[in-house]
Design a protein around this nucleic acid. Structure first.
Length: 256
DNA sequence: ATGGTCGCGGTGCGA
């Protein structure tokens, strides 16, 4: 089984990229972030035509939004964090596929260090950790994937001296991300790629991708026993080279 | 070293 995550930065703008990539990469489950579309306007038929007829949609009009698309049935679909209000930004959808509980997350950006939105970001990571503490054991088969908007280590940043104390790499953000991971998650990309400097995001400015000035902020994390069943995990930079790309590249994990 | 780009929606803001 293949699980993929991709921040598409508007599914309406990226539909042809997403369909093309799906038909080649053939993920069983595709977790999308920043869909930026109401559920009623999501291009559901286009994905169903490729076999992704099981869909958990959780979108807004212009911002945020997540969607989990699957070749296999999605069970027990849940939205957002337990203590989120009904009108909270739509950033999280969970579903069970083949016995695996998959959380598809779009963490807050944070906007600016020290801002209210920055504090909301740190608190969002904390509340997500709480969800796993309260609801799951590390013996369960759990995946947390998506755009977590923080680069954990220096090797996940193109130039750590430039990014020190910057949004996405500040100490409080890295600590919040590490605390979430310490629930028991294994970073599947790192399980197979050692200290490789590979990135999943480059700014929208073309020169940053051309010069490979990126960050690794998109992840597929798995609980320990599930991580043992993972045979590979990689970042596919190809769609980032296509015309009018998302600023993010997809990440894929394969399981036995 | 600086400034550079999109998406949304119909102007400037968020990323």
């Amino acid at each position: 089984m293949k699980v993929a995550t991709w921040n598409v930065n508007s599914i309406k703008s990226r539909l042809q990229h997403a369909l093309k990539w799906c038909s080649v990469a053939e993920p069983d489950v595709l977790c999308l972030q920043e869909t930026k579309v109401l559920d009623a306007d999501f291009p559901a038929r286009e994905f169903a035509a490729l076999g992704y007829e099981h869909q958990a949609l959780f979108g807004e009009g212009a911002y945020n939004g997540v969607a989990t698309l699957s070749l296999h049935p999605l069970e027990n679909i849940e939205f957002n964090l337990p203590d989120d209000k009904p009108d909270a930004q739509r950033r999280l959808v969970a579903a069970t596929v083949n016995g695996i509980r998959i959380f598809n997350a779009y963490a807050p950006h944070g906007t600016k260090l020290g801002s209210d939105k920055y504090r909301y970001k740190l608190d969002w990571h904390r509340r997500l950790r709480k969800l796993f503490d309260e609801r799951f054991s590390t013996d369960d088969d759990v995946i947390l994937c998506g755009d977590l908007n923080v680069a954990p280590h220096e090797m996940d940043v193109w130039k750590p001296t430039v990014w020190k104390d910057k949004l996405h790499f500040s100490k409080p953000e890295r600590e919040a991300l590490m605390d979430l991971k310490r629930w028991g998650f294994i970073d599947l990309f790192r399980q197979f790629n050692g200290e490789a400097k590979e990135f999943s995001w480059w700014s929208v400015f073309h020169s940053d991708f051309e010069k490979n000035r990126g960050l690794r902020i998109d992840f597929i994390w798995a609980s320990p026993t599930l991580a043992e069943d993972c045979t590979d995990c990689w970042i596919d930079r190809e769609p980032r080279t296509w015309e009018h790309p998302s600023d993010h590249a997809p990440v894929i994990a394969e399981f036995d």
